[in-house]
């Protein structure tokens, strides 16, 4: 991978993988989304994925022919520099409606807790780890963000700056 963290490098498919390019491949990334959330790779057909800085993956609709040094390209998608890969809030808000596994649907009162960053105690029989947190607003499903479920607690991963302050 390019050492300059200002550079976006394209994630290539396994076969095209080159040395000194990205730290993960497109296929590994799409496998993760498919395994964890059952979002099939075809959903991302029009998108390319880019790494800027180790393990920080961005999603961009379209393609560019070469690595590029800019401030942003599409939106941050997944962090792969930790043991459990972690989707971003914005990625889940954008693509979470396709998820069919490891989705937690919260009732309205818990949605209000979750968006304020509060941990929620609950029983759930899914695999511990990152989950898509869904709610309902005016009879429509809403994709709120990412939660981390472990030991009977759902920890809100809504970034501090995005959390609501409701009285």
């Amino acid at each position: 991978m390019n050492s300059k963290s200002t550079t976006f490098d394209l994630l290539l498919t396994d076969t095209a993988r080159q040395k000194n390019q990205s730290s993960v491949t497109r296929s590994e990334l799409l496998d993760f989304w498919n395994d964890r959330f059952e979002i099939p790779p075809k959903i991302f057909k029009e998108y390319t994925f880019w790494e800027k800085g180790y393990g920080k993956i961005w999603v961009f609709k379209g393609n560019l022919s070469k690595s590029i040094q800019i401030e942003a390209l599409g939106l941050r998608f997944t962090t792969t520099n930790q043991k459990s890969w972690k989707p971003t809030t914005n990625a889940v808000q954008k693509f979470g409606h396709h998820a069919r596994k490891n989705v937690l649907s919260l009732p309205p009162d818990q949605v209000l807790q979750f968006v304020q960053g509060a941990p929620l105690h609950m029983d759930w029989d899914g695999t511990p780890g990152y989950v898509v947190v869904r709610g309902n607003l005016s009879d429509h499903d809403i994709q709120i963000g990412v939660g981390l479920y472990s030991n009977g607690i759902l920890h809100s991963q809504i970034p501090k700056s995005r959390q609501l302050h409701l009285s």
Binding site: E71, A72, G74, L75, N90
Partner: peptide, 17 residues
């Protein structure tokens, strides 16, 4: 700029400085 475009789900923008 970045956080607005991300929050609004824009995936077709490149930001240059």
């Amino acid at each position: 700029l970045r956080s607005n475009l991300e929050r609004l789900g824009v995936t077709i923008a490149a930001i240059t400085h």
